[in-house]
């Protein structure tokens, strides 16, 4: 893979803060599409609004940077109008699970052939650190100054329940696993959802005792638990650490799909 094949050199430097993992996740995604030999001229990246969605502007393919929460609805139109295109979506926890929640569940239900990479940093980063639907209970943000009081969404489980054919969760620490998951997602017909736990030292970390860039990465390294192990513990009735990040493949199935060439 060459830098020029997939990135717009004239758009760099990017807008992300130091310690943000969005660049790592973008890199993993581009490695995956390159490994699979996708044609950049036949590949479209679609994003909504937020730090994560800005990724699409750095990719040197046709790219559609849309309105807040609506990336999946725009991507649905692109994919149905020309099913021969490879369509990938970059989104974040606020974009996908709050304002775009309806489009998320219906895209999974339709099982439309899109690959969705969600950079879940547990916070609204671009607007300065407000609580999102994945902010853990008790976490501090500018709109939860006394600690988040609402339960958090489990995005991967939501995608499984809503019907996506491929669902995985990794963190920005697990770069090889993430590349493989995105490859598997692209190769699996239907909706593929890859949730990536992402770091945001600027707007999440500094209010939640994770000020140093390495602190969040260390959590990803030490608290991640493979789905298989998690399932074994649950089946055996053994205790599971409440702050475990369950990673791995949640589902891979071949249910009927939408948006593939006839």
């Amino acid at each position: 893979m060459t830098f020029e094949t997939w990135l717009r050199a004239d758009r760099l430097p990017h807008i992300w803060c130091s310690g943000c993992s969005n660049g790592t996740i973008l890199n993993c995604t581009l490695t995956a599409v390159d490994d699979l030999g996708l044609d950049p001229d036949r590949t479209v990246f679609v994003g909504g609004i937020g730090c994560s969605s800005r990724s699409v502007g750095y990719v040197a393919t046709d790219s559609l940077h849309t309105t807040h929460g609506r990336a999946l609805a725009f991507a649905t139109g692109v994919k149905l109008a020309d099913p021969t295109l490879n369509v990938l979506v970059f989104t974040g926890d606020g974009d996908l699970a709050a304002i775009g929640g309806n489009h998320f569940i219906h895209s999974c239900r339709r099982n439309i052939d899109l690959t969705v990479v969600c950079m879940n940093n547990l916070i609204y980063g671009m607007t300065g650190g407000q609580g999102s639907p994945t902010t853990p209970p008790g976490a501090l943000s500018t709109t939860t100054p006394y600690g988040a009081s609402e339960p958090a969404f489990d995005l991967a489980q939501l995608a499984v329940a809503a019907g996506a054919n491929y669902v995985a969760r990794w963190t920005s620490y697990h770069v090889r696993e993430l590349e493989r998951a995105i490859r598997a997602g692209i190769e699996t017909p239907g909706l593929s959802f890859i949730e990536v736990r992402a770091s945001c030292p600027t707007n999440y970390g500094r209010r939640n005792r994770l000020r140093d860039v390495t602190d969040q990465i260390e959590i990803f390294r030490t608290r991640s638990m493979l789905k298989a192990k998690y399932d074994r513990l649950v089946a055996a009735g053994s205790p599971v650490p409440p702050d475990a990040i369950v990673v791995g493949e949640f589902v891979r199935r071949a249910n009927p799909v939408m948006g593939v060439p006839p």
Binding site: V46, T66, R70, A73, F74, T76, G77, L80, A81, H103
Partner: peptide, 20 residues
């Protein structure tokens, strides 16, 4: 033809389709 989940999604899909 696609029936979308709401009107916001409908016009979004139309814009996406138009870009092809």
């Amino acid at each position: 033809f696609i029936q979308m989940e709401d009107e916001i999604a409908s016009i979004a899909a139309v814009i996406g389709a138009s870009w092809t």
